[in-house]
Structure formats: structure tokens, C-alpha cells
Design a protein around this nucleic acid. Structure first.
Lengths: 233, 233
DNA sequence: GCAAAAGTGTTATCCCTACACCCATGA
DNA sequence: TCATGGGTGTAGGGATAACACTTTTGC
């Protein structure tokens, strides 16, 4: 038996007995830059939402793990790799993408700001950091994803050591406190913060001092277990 | 231009220029029955994993919202509807389903045990409740889903009022305490529990008493905002 | 010497924990 | 009257929150 197909259908060579949605991953990458919580966005060069900004992300390769997809898309679109990544939520409203049905498995990620030079140095990809309180209009439902990611991040500061993922290898206690203050958006008491953070037993002095201006030098600290996020409480 | 297709390909009428995974939802429904935390499983009548037990769930209809899919599958396979449902995690290991690439967006749900009569009364669907510490071998990666759901449930008892979703409309404080004890798997102090739960300001006395044996009758309570899960702390 | 950030302790308060006895009922 | 679960308060300990001054440096 033989049947005929138009050339348009010929291009579509992956066929299923029932309709299948497309699956993407999108990643909300946070960092702290210029004393602000910032998020990495990419500029869309193609429709839909051409010219708007969006989260980095893209279609899942068949046979590729979800988290691997998120890491690959992040690397391809922004040059960033090797950072802390965690699944956030899966968005699947039927009309969230005008092209076809798309399910987006979203992740959020944190990176120290000193890793960003790599990205800036890479070729002129249309990626940029935006302060969370100054976002451009976003493609798809990405604003919703960002709002959820921000809430999750702030909540997780309270019961885990996730904030260390923002820190470079070595840092001062004041720098660390500033990170907490920026993410939580409130001032913290210096003495209480130091007592608390040291009691967590997650950081140690390097013995070095950092001189940075006309004031007393600060002791430099480092993580005891780099790259581990511990649940506290 | 014309091309030829086999009849097998003809059956596959939904075609895409790139391969698409299938998307399913799976739901871990918890209840408390016979003083035990139990989970609802369905018996698989068809391959793969024919004859094994699995979480209720199934393929997403194109155009259907993810949560709607979870509710529909739950209703179709077990007769349960109108219960508390929350997204859990999305599983997508490339080989988790032998048929094709399947992404499963999982949910967990809680229901009072007095709603279950409906299901038992419905036609002889192969659905049954299993104690969490006595599960049969499960299809796919469903054991992993259940482990995660259980962890999330126990954690959420500590910072939300999710446990009320296990309760019938009215209940005594002892019944409520027993629910907490079963899920957390530890005894709680009666006086401390009562102080704590009343301080949450989520329940109120109905004024009724429940007589249930040769002992003093218990005061009956009800939720102030039925069906709302509040974040506490 | 002065401006600027680093560093340091004590006290009060709140919350959680531990703990034991009387009450109301049915049999 | 007795067995059974329902119902109640207080005291101690630990964690959190409030609060101000001295130190070290660069200019």
C-alpha cells in the first residue's frame, strides 16, 4: 500500500500516533553584581517574541537528561558552566508558546559574580544581567518563572547554605553579610549575623587579610566544603 | 512530488520536524487509614510492567493543562476528585520508560480517609491502598517518586497546615495529633501539641462533643478556612 | 587626626521542651 | 469502681534579637 505526502509533511519526519508536546528547559541564573541581585537574560533574535528578552533555555534533545539539557543550553547561550543548578517548577499552560504546545521544566542557578568575566569575554552573545527590580518586558511566561525563582531563593536562604553559591572562593564576613542583605532585602545586625554564620560551622578563616581602603583590613574566609549546599535547621 | 510510506508509519499521524518526548503526569495520593500512612496504587493491566503496581497517571492531552491532566487521570483511574494537589518534581531520565522518551510531571495529593468510600463503591477498578512501609515492587521509577513525595510531605508538615488535608470536616485534637504522629513517625507531647496547634489560629471548636468509648467525650473542631493550606513560621 | 569599615559581649525575650495529674464517660 | 482516653499549666533551657564602642588602616 502506498500513500502520498506533501513536501511540507516530508520535512516533519518524527511521527507519533498521538500528539506530543515539545519540552524545553529554562534557567533563571542569579548573581550579585554592583550590590544588586541580578538575573541573566538573553535577547531573542528570532520569533516568537523577537527582540524581547527571555530566560536562557531551549528544547530538550531526545535522549538527553533534563538537567543536562539545562546545563547545555546555559553553556550554549551564555558561556556559563559548572554552577549550582536546581529544578524549580514545570510550566505547561496550553497557550504559553504560540508555536506549539510546550512544556518548560525550569531550573534556577546561582553563580559568584567573579565567574562572569568568562562570559563577557566570549563572543558577542546577546546576554546581559538585569537587576530584579528593573526587568525589561519578558517573552513567554518568563516573568512568572522569575518571580517563583526569586521567592524560592529567598526562602532557601533561611534553611540552607545556598547563599554561599554566590560567593567567590574567598570572602570576608562583611561581603557575605551583604549578600544576605541583598537577597533578603533587609539590613541584618552585624554581631548577630557573625555569631550565626560562624555557628553553622561551614566556613573557616584562611589566615589572610584583605586590605581594601582606608580602614582596618578584613579577615578572609573560605568554605569548608566548597560546592555543597547543606540543609540547616 | 510524491513519497511512499509504510502502513505502520501511516498510523503515526502527528509529525514534527524534531523528535518530541511524550509527557505524562503521575500522582502520589496519600491518606491515613488504619492508623497508617497509605498511598494509592493502580494495577497495570497492560505492558510495560504489566501486572505490577504503579502510581495513577497517564499521558497529557494536547491542549490540556498539566494540573488538569493530573486531576483527570486520578478521576479516571481511581474515581477520586476534588482533593488537594500540588506539583512535586519532574522526572525525565532518558530510559525511564521502555516505550519511548517520557517526561513525567509528578504531583502529590492528600485526602481524608472518609472520602474513600466513593472510590471503593465505584466499579472494580484495580486500585488499592498500600502502607508506605509495605509497598509492592513498582513500575517505572515510581518508587523514587514516592520517596520524594513522602519526604516533601513530612517537611511540609513543619511549615504549613497541609496536614489538615488529611482530616475530615470535623475532628478531635487527638485525631489530629495522631495524623501528625503517623506522618512524622514519632510521638508528640499532648499538651505541647495542643498549645501549638491552637496558637496557629486555624481551627475552632464546633461546640459539639464526640462520644466514642468508655471515656470522656472529646471536643470537636473544624477548620476556619477549609481547603486553604497556609504557610506558618 | 579623621574617616571608614572591621571586629567584639551581654542582656532580655521568646519559643520550645519536658513533665503529671484530674475529668468525664461506658461498662 | 475501674479502665480509657480527654483535658489542663508551669518551669527551665536554648535560640534569637537588641544594642555601642574599640580597632586598624589609608589619606
Amino acid at each position: 500500500m502506498k500513500f502520498t505526502l506533501s513536501s511540507k509533511q516530508l520535512a516533519a519526519q518524527y511521527c507519533y500516533p498521538y500528539p506530543h508536546p515539545a519540552v524545553t528547559t529554562d534557567i533563571a541564573v542569579f548573581t550579585i553584581l554592583d550590590q544588586q541581585l541580578k538575573l541573566l537574560l538573553v535577547h531573542r533574535g528570532a520569533p516568537p517574541f523577537q527582540g524581547m528578552w527571555a530566560l536562557p533555555g531551549g528544547f530538550l534533545d531526545i535522549g538527553e537528561d533534563l538537567e543536562a539539557c539545562a546545563k547545555r543550553e546555559l553553556e550554549e547561550e551564555t558561556g556559563i558552566s559548572g554552577i549550582y543548578l536546581e529544578q524549580l517548577y514545570t510550566f505547561g499552560a496550553p497557550d504559553r508558546d504560540p508555536r506549539e504546545r510546550v512544556i518548560s521544566v525550569t531550573y534556577y542557578a546561582l553563580t559568584p559574580s567573579d565567574r562572569l568575566q568568562l562570559k563577557a569575554a566570549s563572543d558577542a552573545m546577546d546576554a546581559a544581567w538585569f537587576a530584579l527590580d528593573n526587568m525589561p518586558p519578558l517573552a513567554f511566561d518568563h516573568q512568572e518563572i522569575i518571580t517563583l525563582a526569586h521567592r524560592r531563593l529567598a526562602a532557601k536562604l533561611g534553611y540552607s547554605t545556598i547563599a554561599f553559591q554566590f560567593m567567590p572562593e574567598t570572602f570576608t564576613l562583611s561581603e557575605l553579610q551583604t549578600v544576605y542583605e541583598i537577597v533578603l532585602n533587609k539590613k541584618l545586625d552585624k554581631r548577630n549575623f557573625r555569631k550565626w554564620i560562624l555557628a553553622l560551622d561551614q566556613i573557616e578563616e584562611t589566615g589572610e587579610l584583605r586590605r581594601s581602603g582606608n580602614h582596618r583590613p578584613a579577615r578572609i574566609y573560605q568554605l569548608k566544603n566548597p560546592a555543597r549546599v547543606e540543609i540547616i535547621k
